[in-house]
């Protein structure tokens, strides 16, 4: 459960009952997360803004046909993602043959402290782990991002990924194990190196 989930669900009910103001509060509570999430799918910032705008217009226009949900954020994420992917394909100049459901997802990492960079084993390890994360599939990256950045539950992630809860759970599990193994092997290499240093000095 994400923070604000209950408030969102309550506002969603009010919105379905015809209170448009409730949607404006859902908008304000979620706009930054929606934008942050959207930015991972495309570098075209104005496209993302247009899609967010279009998403809320659709909600206002179709509110009588919407159904209740206790998972407003997952619902918004799912709809936004669908719009962005559709628009990206539509606006791409070349007739790219994109597989259904195929898309790019770039996580984007915080900058490392460059001063510590050269000497620090931690930074080296971080780089190894980061490149491992980047080598994951888009869906795996997206799932991990939703999980560790927004704290979405398995159920919510499954909804955004369009998967059964069990498959989304094992997709995440496989990815996390992969990262753990990279982290562990790097740890071993470092301790070997330390051992080597000790052997030299004694």
């Amino acid at each position: 459960m994400y923070p604000n989930q209950k408030e969102d669900a309550k506002l969603w009910m009010e919105f379905l009952d015809g209170n448009q103001g409730a949607l404006s509060r859902i908008y304000l509570a979620n706009i930054n997360d929606l934008y942050a999430f959207g930015c991972k799918f495309s570098v075209d910032r104005s496209l993302i803004k247009d899609c967010i705008q279009d998403l809320f217009i659709t909600l206002l226009q179709t509110h009588t046909k919407l159904s209740p949900t206790d998972n407003v954020k997952a619902y918004l994420f799912t709809s936004l993602k669908r719009k962005i992917i559709r628009e990206t394909i539509r606006s791409s100049r070349f007739e790219q043959v994109m597989e259904r459901g195929d898309y790019r997802f770039e996580v984007g990492f915080e900058k490392l402290d460059t001063q510590a960079f050269e000497h620090d084993n931690y930074s080296k390890k971080t780089l190894a782990v980061r490149s491992a994360i980047e080598s994951l599939t888009s869906r795996q990256k997206e799932a991990l991002y939703l999980r560790f950045y927004f704290g979405l539950s398995h159920k919510e992630i499954a909804e955004v990924l369009h998967l059964e809860v069990q498959s989304s759970r094992s997709l995440i599990n496989r990815a996390v194990k992969k990262i753990r193994n990279v982290m562990r092997s790097d740890k071993k290499r470092i301790s070997n190196f330390l051992y080597f240093l000790l052997a030299q000095t004694s």
């Binding site: 404006s24 706009i31 942050a36 809320f56 206002l60 996580v107 915080e110 991002y145 560790f148 990262i179």
Partner: peptide, 26 residues
């Protein structure tokens, strides 16, 4: 430790952009 490696960048809209989008929606 694994979790700590998931430090992702995040971009924000300015307050004016937030209002502008909502205006257009309305």
């Amino acid at each position: 430790e694994i979790y700590n490696h998931f430090k992702f960048t995040s971009e924000d809209l300015t307050l004016e952009e937030v209002f502008a989008i909502w205006n257009n929606v309305k």
